[in-house]
Design a protein around this nucleic acid. Sequence first.
DNA 1: GTTGACACCTGGACGC
DNA 2: TGCGTCCAGGTGTCAA
Length: 272
Amino acid sequence: MPEIAEVETVRRTLRTQIINKKIKKVTVLYEKMVTPNAELFIKELKNKVIIDILRRGKWLIFDLGQDYLFSHLRMEGKFFLKDQQMPIVKHEHVIITFTDNSELRYHDTRKFGRMLLIPKSENIIETITRQGLEPNDQNLTSKYLYAKLRNKSLAIKSILLDQKIISGLGNIYANEVLYASQINPWRRGKDLTLKECQRIIDASNQIIAQAIELGGTTIKSYTSSLGVTGQFQQYLQVHQREKTNCPNCGSVILRAKLNGRSTYYCPKCQKK
DNA sequence: GTTGACACCTGGACGC
DNA sequence: TGCGTCCAGGTGTCAA
């Protein structure tokens, strides 16, 4: 599933492929995926040029001059650049045809992804994405996190998945960050100390930077556009490593549900 | 304001 | 082999 590192990999790949391409035609095969309605989406995208591709958290943002096209890949969204002659395959829901007859195709097995076409205006990116600070942002400090946690009785794992606090962490990296920080996922946010917040910040910065460098994590169905496959899964310490030994202490890694999400942890290194 | 439950979706794994 | 059930999980919405 695409998290911040995977989305950044997609952004970097697409930037080399479609910058300055002009849109000739748009086809929407699953109307619920686009906002505003498909008719307007198709009409407004025609003749636009891809000026740049930005990212905010897990959102991809296509700069089209007067408009932004926001795209969230959710669980299994992928972009592929293909020739117009190639047959449309199952699960390709939005097809953007350029004037050079290449096509950017959005493929999403589970139809969770969403695209929004919105005119540029002040703070529109912040309004749409509603993101907190990203790992490696110099403003993401232990004091920032400590202040955010102060009144939260939610489990720290759930808080790390809240994009309004730290942007870009998903289930995989939340599991890895808490393991690296040696903090139990069920600890309440307000019970964490300033030092523990610093450990979370340090682990987030280190893990996300390494994951981006390695092209993200490829688990099950996820690959980025052009089939670029991430390598970070080789460095996962606990995620999807249930019943294997903890790399640190040798205890057996456990899996449990926390608010419906699979949570992997070492019972010895991450004591309550 | 905070928190938890649920819906959205489909393919794969698993048990019978 | 075929069928039914469960699971994966990011985000928005709604109710308590």
